[in-house]
């Protein structure tokens, strides 16, 4: 016997969480785009998505974040540190890949210097994932050794029932257990079968890829030039990636006042590494693409023990020139030994 949450109880569930002080976020469709947005009722949610176009990362590491507000006076400069809103949030209907993305980024943001902006939001959020019942051509979680039913980064995991009436509920962290304690009457004992998890075929041999990347002589291989030839150098793969975390710090304002902001930045941009002198360590698109792949599947692993990819496939899904991690790693995987 397991506990289930019925779909028709979702409105009550949202209300109960709101009563317990949570804002509830879920996949929504708005203005021709799907993303995570605040919801008031179940009908606000978009359940039919394999994956929203935007990641859940947006809500932990926003595209632009005010850090410091400053005023420049004649005599003095006043500055005030700005902090993220201190509110409790439930993220409902997160896909396992997006949830993994958060867990993957935690060690980076906590590496010796703790990024308060990230952790304040992390500490105040409960992640309720829904195991996938569908995968599209671009999904690749299994290729990076995760799965459509991975509980990495999740606090509560829901498995859709085969009859579509609701979800089997399982708390996978203390925070998740606490969240479920706010809705005891909405959960019922039941042994309905759950819907089958989709088979996502492995698209490349990750071990082989990592081995190839780790080999020093491949760093300057012609492979990088060939594979990235059509890259136009936009940042959409990095900005829609659940694990990409690079940013820029910019002062924005006028002569008298302004705000120092932390903005998303992308290793695909040529200015990303450009020195003031004009020297640019990564001055071609191929070196930038190599950086992205190496960072995800070699450097990050060396520092934090995990690959910086959760296999959501967004990089390929929305690339204007049909590139992406899958193609590159497949190509590496297919290289003759």
């Amino acid at each position: 016997m397991t506990r289930i949450l019925l779909r028709n109880k979702l409105d009550d569930c949202i209300a109960a969480w709101q009563k317990a002080g949570f804002s509830v976020f879920a996949p929504v469709r708005q203005h021709e785009m799907s993303s995570f947005g605040e919801v008031q009722k179940a009908s606000d949610m978009a359940f039919d998505l394999v994956l929203p176009e935007r990641t859940i990362k947006d809500h932990f590491f926003p595209q632009t974040e005010p850090l410091i507000k400053y005023k420049i006076g004649k005599q003095q400069i006043d500055s005030e540190t700005m902090t993220p809103p201190d509110r409790k949030r439930v993220f409902f209907g997160v896909r396992p890949c997006d949830a993994s993305g958060l867990a993957i980024d935690d060690p980076l943001f906590g590496w010796d210097y703790k990024d308060d902006y990230w952790f304040r939001r992390r500490d105040n959020s409960v992640i309720v994932t829904i195991v996938c019942t569908e995968a599209d051509d671009f999904c690749m979680c299994t290729s990076v050794k995760l799965s459509p039913e991975s509980d990495k980064g999740a606090d509560v995991m829901l498995r859709p029932l085969a009859n579509g009436a609701g979800w089997q509920v399982e708390a996978v962290s203390e925070r998740g257990t606490a969240l479920l304690e706010t809705i005891p009457s909405l959960l019922q004992e039941n042994s309905e079968p759950t819907a089958p998890v989709p088979q996502v075929a492995e698209k490349f041999d990750l071990e082989k890829v990592m081995e190839w990347l780790a080999s020093k002589e491949n760093f300057e291989s012609q492979f990088w030039k060939d594979i990235s030839l059509r890259c136009v150098g936009c940042g959409s793969c990095t900005f829609l990636c659940p694990t990409c975390h690079c940013f820029d710090i910019q002062d924005e304002g006028d002569t008298y006042a302004g705000i120092r902001r932390k903005n998303w930045d992308s290793c695909s941009f040529s200015l990303f590494t450009m020195h003031t002198s004009g020297h640019n360590p990564r001055n071609t698109q191929s070196t930038r693409w190599r950086q992205r792949i190496m960072h995800k599947f070699n450097y990050y692993r060396g520092k934090f023990g995990v690959n910086s990819c959760s296999g959501c496939g967004r990089c390929t899904r929305q690339c204007p020139v049909d590139m992406g991690i899958t193609e590159t790693l497949q190509a590496i995987s297919n290289l003759p030994r």
């Binding site: 947006d58 974040e65 005010p66 902090t83 993220p84 809103p85 939001r121 705000i259």
Partner: peptide, 8 residues
């Protein structure tokens, strides 16, 4: 709007 706290 941009002068206030982050909306996220």
């Amino acid at each position: 709007v941009i002068e206030t706290q982050s909306t996220y």
